[in-house]
């Protein structure tokens, strides 16, 4: 070791700032810095950056973990680019819960998006409580059901498989759409008896939307538009659990 410590490299300066320089070399670099005040000042400022990061972001580790992450423990359904869904998820609560539903000023001829969600929720409330006549065509005739509804809606429908999420297809039915024309309803049921419906109608206004969320009474709904069709997924259990189902549905529809 000479009297004049070797000039530290930039990598060594970085390692010094991060406290990752071995002790011997660290002593040399610090000796060199004591002779070079400009560099010493720079190093102090670089260290202050780390201090600021800790001060501003340190507490973010203490946030409680939301319950939604428990869902990741369920068997995974990650098989298609999940992120396309995530990027779409701009949750927009449509006004106060129930507010727009209760507003009869928005009827036929009103906002078609509101009509879409309203029609779907009404259909859900009508049929989800039916025990014997919940569906028109049972899941045992799924191929026929899907072909029939596809023909009536003039678009290739699919009945998403939600087995992994714990919901099996009960069947489906044809309905009048919110504005005009036909709509389809697929019904699902969990072991608990909890029911979920997916309402599908033609996307007459066109365009693609993000997931939209709304609540009415005891049901929640996500609706979105994608290509020729508009979808509304309705169930109980709140936003987070329904969101997981909506994402799974979307992935099933866009494999």
């Amino acid at each position: 070791m000479s009297d004049l410590p070797e000039i530290p490299t930039e990598d060594e300066i970085q390692a010094l700032v991060d406290g990752r320089l071995d002790p011997a070399r660290r002593a040399e670099v610090e000796a060199w810095l004591s002779e070079n005040p400009d560099e010493a000042a720079r190093v102090a400022e670089l260290r202050d950056i780390s201090g600021a990061v800790e001060q501003v972001y340190g507490h973010l580790l203490e946030r409680p973990i939301p319950a939604r992450f428990q869902n990741a423990a369920a068997p995974s359904m990650a098989r298609s680019p999940v992120w396309r869904v995530a990027a779409m998820i701009v949750l927009v609560a449509m006004g106060a819960a129930g507010g727009w539903f209760a507003n009869d000023a928005v009827g036929p001829g009103g906002d078609p998006n509101v009509n879409l969600a309203r029609g779907a929720v009404k259909a859900h409330q009508m049929y989800a409580r039916e025990v014997r006549h919940a569906v028109e065509v049972p899941a045992s005739e799924e191929a026929h059901l899907v072909a029939w509804l596809s023909k009536r809606l003039d678009a290739p429908l699919r009945a998403p498989n939600l087995d992994v999420q714990g919901y099996r297809l009960v069947g489906g039915r044809l309905l009048p759409a919110s504005d005009s024309g036909p709509a389809a309803q697929f019904m699902y049921e969990a072991e608990s008896g909890e029911r979920l419906t997916l309402y599908v109608e033609q996307n007459l206004t066109g365009g693609e939307t993000a997931f939209r969320f709304t609540e009415y009474d005891d049901v929640s709904a996500f609706w979105w538009k994608d290509g020729p069709l508009a979808y509304v997924l309705i169930g109980r259990g709140g936003r987070d659990s329904l969101l997981t189902l909506a994402r799974a549905t979307y992935q099933e529809l866009n494999p």
Binding site: F69, N71, P75, A78, V82, W83, I89
Partner: peptide, 17 residues
């Protein structure tokens, strides 16, 4: 925050799979 948590959830799901 919603987007960040979606990213983490995707990460966990992918790790599980």
């Amino acid at each position: 925050e919603p987007l960040a948590d979606d990213l983490v959830q995707d990460c966990l799901e992918r790790a599980m799979s």
